[in-house]
Every structure is written in structure tokens, then in C-alpha cells.
């Protein structure tokens, strides 16, 4: 699939990236104004990874996500108003407003859920892959996680199980250079996190995570491998988060210059430039993608804001089964 030369795909990729960006900007603004509950983690700057990766998936495929998961949800086709409602603690949210940013799951689109536990999605992805295999299906499971996850025990266990049982899982590491304030260079001895794949006897590649085409190509190959029954792969997509780790991050562990240099490699600007250069889309078509994203996000906020607030009165119905017969 050529994201840059095919007009329809380019439009879709660009609109997805803008939607993620706009959604998170809106969320950032809502939090700044004191209108959002809980904390959240923004993936602004990393939009090319979920966008490129999910374009290699089709209906019936699964993903597992992370604490920084808005982009994964959107790229996998979640409804923006239900996401926004979840973040605004509304009854119409994906988890009826009870989970917030870090607990959005959407089984309808195969999104097995964001996860507040670093590497928490990795064993879940292995489990989903096992289910697919036992049922004799041809779906793929894509597991997103950060660079911090690769040093968790759960990550090792999940990847190893997927490897020894040839499960149809694609492990996508969003290496944004830091786990909270811990630089990836201080946390791992290997040069590329993809080198870890060797330990599990599976293929591993490192790609430019700010280029949706590169991400897509690597994921596409891995998905085909998975569907063919040849087992999992590890893809490391190198990218950068522009915003703090979460709220109340003073950026004491990195310099303004470093942040600025990555802002200059904005994946969206780069993609727009490439698409214009190839004359796939015109300036006004680019603007139309931007407007579509903005309008979709605004409509989501409007719908979500008008919905009833989640109520604490019957929280237990989400804990015990059989409450209402």
C-alpha cells in the first residue's frame, strides 16, 4: 500500500494523523481549563506510528494499547464522541465514564483496551493470538507498547510465549526515547530495542516512527507473516513525544533544544510535504483533511459535553455480575 502516492490512502492517513493531533490538543486544552478529571498522557508527535500500523490491519484484527493510547484507539476506528465522553466522565463513554483516558476499550473494533500497567497489553496480545490460533482464524493481533515496557517481566513472558507457539502477534514498540524521565540509552544496553528480537528467535526491525509509510511497510510484512502462521515479529518505531510524560512534567530530563529539534521533524508536516511533492493531493485537499479532523473532534466534544454525567450511584454493577435480572 502506498500511503504517499495513492490519493485515497494518503487522505485517510493524513486525516487520521490530524484527528489524533486535534483530539489530543483539545484534551490538553480541556485539562488545562480544569474541565477534565484524572491525568492523561498525550502522544502528540507520535501520530505516524498508530496511523501507519493500523492501515496494515483489517476488520477482525485486534490491538492492545497503552497508557498513551488515544492514537491507537482513533487509528483502529473508535468513535470520537464515545472516547471524549469517557474522558469527560460521561455515562455515554466507552466505559461509562468510569475509566477515563487510560481504560478505553472498544471490543467492536477489536481494541482490547488501553492499559495503565506498563507492558500490561503484551501478555493480553499473546492470549488473543492464542485464541485466534486455537480457533483456526486468520486474524492478526497488534500490540503497542513503549520503550519502557521492554524491560518488564511481563513483556518477556508475552513475547516468548508468542514466539514459542508461533502466535499471530505483531509487537510494535513506540520508542519515544524516554520512559517517564528515564532515557532509553540509560535503560538498555542494546543499540536498537529491535535487537531484543534475537533473544526470542523472531525477526526484529527498527523503523523511522515519524514516517507512516515506513511503519506501515514493516507492520504489513509482519502481519502477513503472522497470518501465514509463521509467528510474531518485533518492530521498533523511533519517534518522540512533544508533551510531558503526563501532567506536571517539568522536562528536567531533556532540553528545550532536543524537544525543538523533534518538533521540526513533525510527522504530519513531513507527510504533507511528501504528498504535495508527489502531487498526490493539492493544497486544498490537504486543508480539507485538516478541516475534517477539526470538525470531527469538535462534534465529538459537543456530543460528549451534552451527555449525562457518569453517576457513582451504581458503580458496583460494573464489579459484580447478575445485579439486574
Amino acid at each position: 500500500m502506498d500511503l504517499v502516492k495513492d490519493a485515497e490512502t494518503a487522505t485517510s492517513a493524513l486525516t487520521t494523523m490530524w484527528t489524533i493531533r486535534r483530539f489530543e490538543e483539545a484534551v490538553d486544552d480541556l485539562f488545562a481549563r480544569g474541565l477534565m478529571h484524572g491525568t492523561m498522557h498525550l502522544s502528540i508527535g507520535q501520530e505516524a506510528v498508530p496511523t501507519g500500523a493500523c492501515l496494515a490491519l483489517r476488520e477482525g484484527d485486534y490491538i492492545t494499547s497503552t497508557h498513551r493510547g488515544h492514537g491507537h484507539c482513533i487509528a483502529k476506528g473508535a468513535q470520537l464522541d464515545r472516547m471524549m465522553a469517557e474522558l469527560l466522565a460521561k455515562e455515554t463513554g466507552y466505559c461509562r465514564g468510569r475509566g477515563g483516558s487510560m481504560h478505553i476499550a472498544d471490543v467492536a473494533t477489536g481494541n482490547l483496551g488501553a492499559n495503565g500497567i506498563v507492558a500490561g497489553g503484551v501478555p493480553i496480545a499473546a492470549g488473543a493470538g492464542l485464541a485466534v490460533k486455537m480457533r483456526g482464524q486468520s486474524h492478526a493481533v497488534l500490540s503497542f507498547f513503549g520503550d519502557g515496557a521492554v524491560n518488564e517481566g511481563a513483556w518477556h513472558e508475552g513475547v516468548n510465549l508468542a514466539a514459542i507457539w508461533d502466535l499471530p502477534v505483531v509487537f510494535v514498540c513506540e520508542n519515544n526515547k524516554y520512559g517517564m524521565s528515564m532515557s532509553v540509552n540509560r535503560a538498555s544496553k542494546v543499540d536498537n530495542l529491535a535487537d531484543r528480537a534475537a533473544a526470542y528467535g523472531i525477526p526484529g526491525v527498527t523503523v523511522d516512527g515519524n514516517d507512516p509509510q515506513e511503519v506501515h511497510d514493516a507492520v504489513d510484512e509482519a502481519v502477513e507473516r503472522a497470518r501465514a502462521g509463521n509467528g510474531p515479529s518485533l518492530i521498533e518505531a523511533v519517534t518522540y513525544r512533544w508533551k510531558g510524560h503526563s501532567k506536571s512534567d517539568k522536562n528536567l530530563y531533556r532540553s528545550r533544544e532536543e524537544i525543538d529539534s523533534w518538533r521540526e521533524q513533525d510527522p504530519i508536516t513531513r507527510f504533507e510535504t511528501a504528498v504535495l511533492h508527489q502531487q498526490t493531493l493539492t493544497e486544498s485537499e490537504l486543508a480539507a483533511c485538516r478541516d475534517a479532523a477539526r470538525d470531527a473532534v469538535r462534534a465529538a466534544i459537543r456530543t460528549a459535553n451534552a451527555a449525562p454525567d457518569a453517576s457513582a450511584d451504581e458503580l458496583l454493577s460494573a464489579v459484580y455480575s447478575g445485579g439486574k435480572q
Binding site: A26, N305, D309
Partner: peptide, 14 residues
């Protein structure tokens, strides 16, 4: 992005 969106009625006005 939020222009004019938050002035309307909401669940609890929050």
C-alpha cells in the same frame, strides 16, 4: 478547537 463549544448546556454544567 473549543471555540463556542463549552457555552451550551452540559450534563451538570461542569
Amino acid at each position: 478547537l473549543l471555540d463556542g463549544l463549552l457555552d451550551g448546556p452540559s450534563g451538570n454544567g461542569s
